Simulated scan of single mutants.
Amino acid sequence: MAQDLDTSSLVVDFVGGAVGHRFRSGEGRGQALAKAVGFSRGIVPEIVDATAGLGRDAFFLASLGARVTLIERSATMHDLLAEGLERARAEGGKYAETVALMTLIHGDSSALLPQLKPQVVLVDPMHPPRNNTALVKKEMRLIREIVGTDPDAAQLMQVALETARNRVVLKWPLRAEPMSVLPKPSHQILGKSTRYDVFVKARIAETTSSVQTA
């Protein structure tokens, strides 16, 4: 890990850049992530993002109407997320509506999940280092500098599987070996460079969109 990186340059931005473009383009439930967490006709899951990071997946899911709880144990990353959420809230309109569905918590997911009794848990740990991939990008190097390598990812997955009421989703590199301690997933959804290992425990009941009560 490089020690001379200036992590102060890292900003969580839900309004501009790629996240803002994705939001404005109206990418919806047909996306792999949305399918993985259980969106379908009449179903809007309630989700805990157990490894919030930059919050991009959580913001996307909230933009579809899901209530999302973001857990981040790094104090630095938590503060960056809080600032990003406040900027999006100040933008007003659909940005503010989306942020209203998001709850940010500073803490360790392994300790918090049993208390939250989540419906759906999304786990996106720092992925195994790969020499010729996105880890060479400055942003990913900065994130790794701040949050570390998530050596307890397998333990977190086990806690998630024990506590989630309906399903657990592991976001993992497309060609990476599965975690050896985990059971075989119910199914997988494959993207260009990412796959979602989905562990279904129970069907998610149909519900009205939570946007109505935001």
Rank of each mutant, 00 (worst) to 15 (best):
S180W: 14
L70S: 04
V198C: 13
A75P: 09
A202P: 05
S40I: 05
R203Y: 08
Q115P: 01
L54F: 03
L101Y: 08
Q31C: 01
L112K: 09
E97P: 04
A134E: 10
I143D: 04
Q115S: 09
S109Q: 02
I71H: 05
R24D: 03
D124R: 12
T103H: 15
A36H: 03
T149N: 10
A66M: 12
V159Q: 09
T149W: 15
E162P: 07
R130A: 14
H78Q: 10
A75I: 10
D108I: 06
F39P: 00
A214P: 01
Y95P: 00
L104G: 00
P173M: 07
L112D: 05
Q188C: 15
V68I: 10
Q155E: 13
G191N: 06
R130F: 13
A134L: 15
N131P: 12
E206G: 02
M179W: 13
L135F: 14
P114F: 11
F60T: 00
L122I: 08
V11L: 05
S180E: 15
T213D: 09
V169T: 07
L112P: 07
G84N: 04
A202C: 08
V15K: 02
A164W: 01
M179C: 09
R87K: 12
A214C: 08
H127P: 03
G38M: 03
R144N: 05
A66S: 15
Q212P: 02
V200G: 00
R41M: 00
T98Q: 04
P173N: 06
P45S: 10
L54N: 01
L142V: 13
V12C: 07
N166E: 14
P114V: 07
K171D: 05
D13M: 08
T133A: 13
T133Y: 06
F59C: 03
I43Y: 00
K201F: 10
A176V: 04
R141W: 08
L61V: 01
E177C: 10
D108K: 11
W172S: 09
F199C: 14
K35F: 00
I146A: 01
A160M: 12
P183W: 15
K138F: 04
A160T: 15
R203W: 06
D150E: 11
A66R: 02
P129H: 04
D57E: 04
D152H: 12
R165I: 06
R67D: 01
A96Y: 11
Y95M: 05
E86H: 08
A50Q: 03
L122C: 13
S209D: 03
R73K: 15
E162Y: 06
A75F: 08
V198N: 11
A96R: 11
V19N: 03
A176Y: 04
A90N: 13
A62M: 15
L156T: 13
L81R: 05
S74I: 12
D49E: 09
L113D: 03
A2Q: 14
A88H: 02
T194E: 03
V198F: 06
R41V: 01
D4Q: 11
Y196T: 05
